[in-house]
Design a protein around this nucleic acid. Sequence first.
RNA 1: GGGUCAUUAGCUCAGCUGGUAGAGCAGCGGACUUUUAAUCCGUUGGUCGAUGGUUCGAAUCCAUCAUGACCCA
Length: 508
Amino acid sequence: MSEQNTPIEEHHDVNKLIAERKHKLAALREQGNPFPNDFRRDATSDQIMAQYEHLSKEELEEKKIRVTVAGRMMLRRVMGKASFATIQDVGGKVQLYVARDSLPENVYNEGFKKWDLGDIIGGSGVLFKTQTGELTVWLDEIRLLTKALRPLPDKFHGLTDQEACYRQRYLDLIVNEQSRKTFLIRSKTVAYIRQFFNSKGFLEVETPMLQGIPGGASARPFETHHNALDMQMFLRIAPELYLKRLVVGGFEKVFELNRNFRNEGVSTRHNPEFTMLEFYWAYADYNDLMDITEELFRGLAQSVLGTTEVQYQGNVFDFGKPFARMSVTESILHYNPDVKLEQLTTREAVAELAKSLGIEVKANYGHGRILMEVFDELVETKLQQPTFITEYPAEISPLARRNDHNPEITDRFEFFIGGRELGNGFSELNDAEDQAERFHEQVRQKAAGDDEAMFYDEDFVTALEHGLPPTAGQGIGIDRLVMLLADAPSIRDVILFPHMRHTDKHGS
RNA sequence: GGGUCAUUAGCUCAGCUGGUAGAGCAGCGGACUUUUAAUCCGUUGGUCGAUGGUUCGAAUCCAUCAUGACCCA
């Protein structure tokens, strides 16, 4: 083994720190396998703290509680013949007391003192409290479990370089507690959502991410090619059309929690792949969706954060109160007292308003499309507290059911928190003939140069012809939701391995 | 796509109006058996993001490029 590991590249070791550690590893190989896998711990640091932190110095001396722990050595304070070391495991940190005379012959000088910060070690001993009252394990047994060849980032400052945190997330997780917390919040959020929908009788399903026709949203897809079938394929931009097929099939309450892909720019709010919750609920409408969304968000914040008041970047968003509900038109008027209702009611008037705001109005834009451009400009960022915006124009809602009183609008809403769209829901269009006509209109838009317009999905129309029961469905962006709960300013902070440009240095 | 800023040791950062590079941590050697970013003494370590240019001389000035952050589209 060690012969194989005498690489030519050893001369190329860029820095002496790595070379030093490799020499130590070579010496360890002489003595046996430096990567053993026969060590078993019986406690993690958080368990130890929870169970024994409250005991006094005297009680601990009396009880002689033995624990076996393992983790990465993060700090070490050597004081001659004894040392303190701090190890970090999945539950947090715990301090070890390592004294020469408590260990077998030579282990302290020939072993422990030669190991490095970043190495994974394990040991057994009795709990005690130090003079300053810190719960500590007095080891009588210690082993090196994994040799680390690269040094950790600065033990005090950690890793602050954003790029390094994203590209080498493992380092970020090792040294930045905030980052660990963020991903714990993410995990709890997803777990809560699963439990929430399961408890309400929704069935979790998985539908294709590799699709022949990308549908369910207006977005540019990633394209790929299936070699054996010699056919063009797309990564999905949304699961919507497949989930509705399942409702046609009789699964009346379904949800899917997984990845969508959109071939668009990256920003603090956009990653090319992102996680969506979509759920479909037969015999319900968009008002039911707004109600269940409030219930979900309230329970989620309470469960994950222990409060319904969500602190985000210096603001407080109250998930406890009923969420505001207003129409697109109402919201424009409400947040812009200068704008008059007459400026919104005809295509000509709203086009003029849009132009005065510097918005480009293309010839093929209808009244509804222009109204939404104005909304994006004048309202979206002002929707700080949780708000549902309703009455979306049919023109930009090709999959949503028309309103019974006004066919130009749909029974649809989007909802916003902190000036960002978090979700989109509507009563589903289940009129197959209307759906076919709306797809035709999308195809016309695509032909006119709108590459975000939808494809005609004949199989989906066939499914609708078999009868989709009256249904409501909604999507919620999980990454943006986690940003809120974790108080994270960028979507990259809540995605473990965010998209980064390829570099020779690290790959991606 | 546009603007602003950044890139110097493994990590965190200094480095002035141009004169060939510095600290702390980590590492290495030594002292130290209750430390807390341990402390104390000594010490190694750099293609200053890349490529051109200006200059007797460039980490520093200029141009282009790369990567990132933030803002705007």
